[in-house]
């Protein structure tokens, strides 16, 4: 969340906001469930939102306090992880795809198969996220990214056994850095990272993998027992204002789910293929997988550790 947006909210309402950052949903959950700190507002992705709703860890939103929710594009309401939209409000979405430095890579790369065909050995950065890594193999094998069973994982194993040794760096925090530094020529990264690269230099092309691709939806939600629920709702409502939402897009060029805010974006922003992929790609979202997370962790650790 850009500091400018937070300062603007404090200036207008007098409500002070203290922010704590985390690198992943899992880290956020660890902090939230450890119970050391009491948060009024969290930003989980779709599969984490789903798990939190299931576990009864979220407050139901009072939508009367959030009239700006009408600004959301229809495809971002009533989502599978929160079918009635009672617990969470999407504020940012994006996809995971392939970035190619076309100044270095002359052969076309259309999907995971091309990326890991052996010609780009040790020229690849990928997200350091075990569930992501396994989802690419699942897509490659034409399974749904949520079809995680002992059998499908067993099928993923030989694929990843071939892929992972070709990776040079695992980085979830800032994979664009390795691409900019020239340490690697290709990557599987968050679309927002790719959008920043594209903005810096058009040679960094973003491709949604031909096999399948998936998208993530980051929402705002209020954890159970939050002390300042009403203020949290005020903040959500503030974020949904088009002129505020645009500032978030300026700082983090992911896909903005706010239809009114999109109207205020510049032509260049809308033309960035990483932020707003052309056409109407079919994108899957992750659903909560509960305890199978353990099997995923084991699979990837076994392959990486050897």
């Amino acid at each position: 969340m850009p500091q400018e947006v937070i300062d603007g909210f404090t200036k207008e309402t007098g409500i002070k906001v203290s922010v704590e950052n985390y690198a992943s949903n899992e880290e956020m959950l660890a902090k939230l469930l450890a119970g050391g700190a009491h948060y009024d507002l969290i930003q989980p992705s779709e599969y984490t939102t789903e798990a939190l709703i299931k576990a009864g860890k979220l407050e139901e939103l009072n939508l009367a306090n959030i009239p700006n929710i009408k600004n959301l594009a229809p495809e971002f309401t009533k989502l599978p992880h929160d079918p009635e939209g009672k617990y969470s409000v999407p504020w940012m979405a994006g996809s995971v795809g392939i970035v190619v430095n076309t100044a270095k890579v002359k052969t076309p790369v259309k999907g995971y198969g091309d990326l890991f065909d052996g010609t780009h050995k040790k020229r690849i950065v990928v997200l350091n996220d075990n569930r992501e890594i396994v989802s690419w193999a699942l897509s490659f094998l034409d399974h749904s990214v949520n079809d995680i069973t002992p059998e499908t994982l067993q099928q993923c194993k030989p694929v990843l056994e071939k892929w992972l040794p070709q990776v040079k760096v695992y980085d979830s925090d800032s994979p664009k850095t390795e691409l900019l530094n020239g340490d690697v020529d290709l990557g599987i990264v968050w679309s927002g990272e790719a959008a920043i690269l594209y903005k810096k230099n058009k040679k960094f092309q973003y491709i949604l993998p031909s096999e399948h691709a998936h998208r993530f939806i980051d929402s705002l939600a209020i954890p159970k027992g939050a002390a300042n629920k009403e203020n949290a709702e005020k903040f959500i409502n503030y974020i949904l204002r088009p002129e505020v939402s645009v500032k978030i897009s300026d700082a983090f060029p992911y896909t903005n789910p706010n239809a009114e805010a999109r109207k205020l974006l510049t032509k260049a922003q809308l033309a960035n293929p990483a932020s707003y992929p052309p056409g109407d790609p079919k994108l899957e979202t992750f659903s909560d997988i509960g305890k199978t997370a353990k099997d995923i962790d084991k699979l990837v650790t076994d392959l990486k550790g050897q």
Partner: peptide
């Protein structure tokens, strides 16, 4: 570290 954060085991 991964067990405590990412894998949450």
């Amino acid at each position: 570290q991964n067990q405590f954060l990412q894998a949450r085991d």
